[in-house]
């Protein structure tokens, strides 16, 4: 099953600064919800360990995250793949950055998550709301990390 999301949010940081943050897995990855650990394999690729789970079923998943496309200062895109509980997922995430009116940066993001395997059959209906919640948390974290005043910019998604 596939889930496509997109939205936009704005941050105080100027475009170049926001770009440098989003295009660096070392800075970007810790904003992922339930982030635990990052192990870089090379400049563009790292294994991110996140905690995952539904209800009482909990575990860790390793996501291999690769910076796929970088067009400073306007675009950064990642490909990710990982597995969890006998299932696999692939995700593509992109950030397009525009200078916002009155300073700061408008970030237009898009995510495409594909799930394969047992989890889809068992919990297919649950994945969309969970993914939606986690994306909101990610956006909040990114805004907080890139804003001088610690967040509170507008976001839609």
């Amino acid at each position: 099953m596939g889930i496509k999301f997109n939205g936009e949010f704005s941050v105080d940081a100027p475009r170049q600064e926001a770009y440098e943050f989003l295009a660096d897995p070392r800075k970007f990855a810790p904003c992922l919800p339930t982030y635990e650990n990052l192990e870089m394999k090379n400049e563009r690729t790292g294994d991110v360990t996140v905690k995952v789970g539904v209800g009482k079923i909990r575990g860790s998943a390793v996501v291999e995250l690769t910076l796929k496309d970088e067009q400073p200062p306007s675009r950064a895109a990642y490909d990710g793949k990982g597995k969890i509980m006998g299932s696999a997922f692939n995700m593509a995430t992109s950030f397009d950055l525009e200078e916002a009116e009155g300073g700061g940066t408008l970030v237009k993001w898009a995510g495409d998550l594909s799930m394969f395997g047992k989890l889809v059959a068992l919990a297919g209906g649950l994945i969309r709301p969970i993914a939606k919640k986690d994306i909101k948390r990610l956006v909040d974290a990114l805004q907080a990390a890139m804003s001088t005043d610690g967040g509170a910019s507008s976001a839609t998604g």
Binding site: M1, S114, M115, F116, V120, A121
Partner: peptide
């Protein structure tokens, strides 16, 4: 099956 080849009626 869904468009990705997941069997949706696997139980």
């Amino acid at each position: 099956y869904d468009e990705g080849g997941n069997l949706l009626t696997a139980t």
